[in-house]
């Protein structure tokens, strides 16, 4: 094996490795989103975040616009404090609202971001005030049953005006 052929092979090998790395970074991973560091952070408080995890997607109209950066419990307000990193190429009004949603029935949970109508835009460190926590199945069912019972109750005691 002479030196030139050997170097050629090694060069080919290294190039191949780099191409594979680029493919992984751009085609498989999401380097173009938060790998570049071009994000700004906003915070929101939820009364319940369900199964929301760090790095869960933040979507607006179904498009990925950012990721959940960290989740912690706020001991001052006794609710969940969620920090989100939003891609700098997307701007949202300050009166936008966020809610914890589920993709599909058994899918992962994500943050849905609905744009508001204000002229001022969210900046790094701002808080989104309008929030809607996760739906918890047990509570939904409980509420449904309660409503049903109330409906039944109203039919029977319509003259009582709802007093127990």
């Amino acid at each position: 094996m002479n030196r030139a052929t050997l170097n050629l092979w090694v060069g080919f090998f290294v190039l191949l490795g780099f191409l594979a790395f680029l493919m992984l970074a751009f085609k498989v991973g999401n380097l173009n989103l938060d790998g570049s560091g071009g994000t700004y952070e906003v915070v929101a408080h939820f009364d319940n975040i369900g199964q929301l995890k760090e790095r869960a997607p933040v979507r607006s109209s179904g498009v990925l616009v950012g990721r959940v950066h960290s989740v912690r419990f706020d001991t001052l307000h006794y609710n969940a404090e969620v920090h989100m990193a939003i891609d700098t190429q997307y701007h949202f009004p300050v009166d936008s609202s966020v809610s914890v949603l589920t993709s599909g029935i058994l899918g992962e949970q994500y943050v849905g971001l609905d744009a508001g109508g204000d002229d001022k835009m969210l900046k790094n460190g701002d808080e989104i005030k309008l929030t809607q926590g996760a739906m918890v199945l047990e509570r939904l069912i409980g509420q449904f049953l309660f409503n049903k019972a109330q409906e039944g109750g109203t039919d029977k005691t319509s003259t009582d005006k709802g007093a127990p």
């Binding site: 790395f21 970074a25 498989v28 991973g29 790998g35």
Partner: peptide
């Protein structure tokens, strides 16, 4: 296939850590 993969695989946490 590709879009779900891209949404789930993170450059830092998955690819760089693997490296």
């Amino acid at each position: 296939f590709w879009s779900q993969m891209q949404a789930a695989v993170d450059f830092h946490h998955d690819i760089l850590n693997g490296m």
